[in-house]
């Protein structure tokens, strides 16, 4: 009877988009918090129980700051401006502005994730700090930026879902 069904067995019913949206937003917030606190953890660890000569300085924070700004920019863009190049409310100059700002946001995200690898390699691996409690501060930098990027991707996907939900509420 049910034409919109994807699988043969009704046990594999996909959840509706409102639930997916809520879960995705929760997941995104949790991932961002994990990324942020992993970085803070590295800084506190470096200050309190670190026995080696390497310490977390401002340099280590730059990739995380870039990633956070990139996430803020990417998820603040009005998504409908990107696709409507003709007609509607958005003139083509608004579309181009949206694309440019979005490009800036994704570049900041890419700078963040590659910068964290750069810090790990240049500050820890090249100088032969490869035993674990020390190199953990560099690894946590990579983990932090990867978590922030995953959080951004989750939020982006979830916001771009086709929502029949809001239409059904509006009617």
């Amino acid at each position: 009877m049910d034409n919109g069904r994807l699988f043969k067995f009704s046990a594999f019913k996909l959840p509706n988009s409102a639930t997916v949206r809520a879960v995705g937003v929760y997941l995104s917030g949790a991932l961002y918090a994990i990324g942020f606190w992993v970085m803070v953890d590295a800084a506190i660890y470096s200050k309190s129980v670190n026995a080696s000569v390497v310490h977390v300085t401002f340099i280590d924070w730059i990739p995380a700051i870039c990633s956070s700004f990139g996430m803020l920019i990417v998820n603040s863009i009005e998504k409908s401006r990107l696709l409507s190049s003709e007609g509607g409310f958005g003139s083509s100059s608004t579309t181009w502005q949206a694309r440019l700002v979005l490009f800036l946001g994704f570049s900041l995200l890419a700078i963040g994730i590659s910068g964290s690898f750069l810090v790990l390699i240049l500050k820890f691996l090249v100088k032969n700090f490869t035993s674990f409690p020390t190199v953990g501060m560099g690894v946590s930098n990579v983990v932090s930026n990867a978590c922030i990027m995953l959080s951004c991707i989750t939020l982006w996907i979830v916001q771009n879902l086709e929502d029949d939900y809001s239409y059904s509420l509006a009617l």
């Binding site: 961002y32 918090a33 994990i34 803070v40 129980v49």
Partner: peptide, 21 residues
Amino acid sequence: RFLSSFLLTTGIAFPLILNHC
């Protein structure tokens, strides 16, 4: 929802960080 989930994860992560340090 984002902020609430962020705060809940923060609350769980905060004692873990203090334990790690």
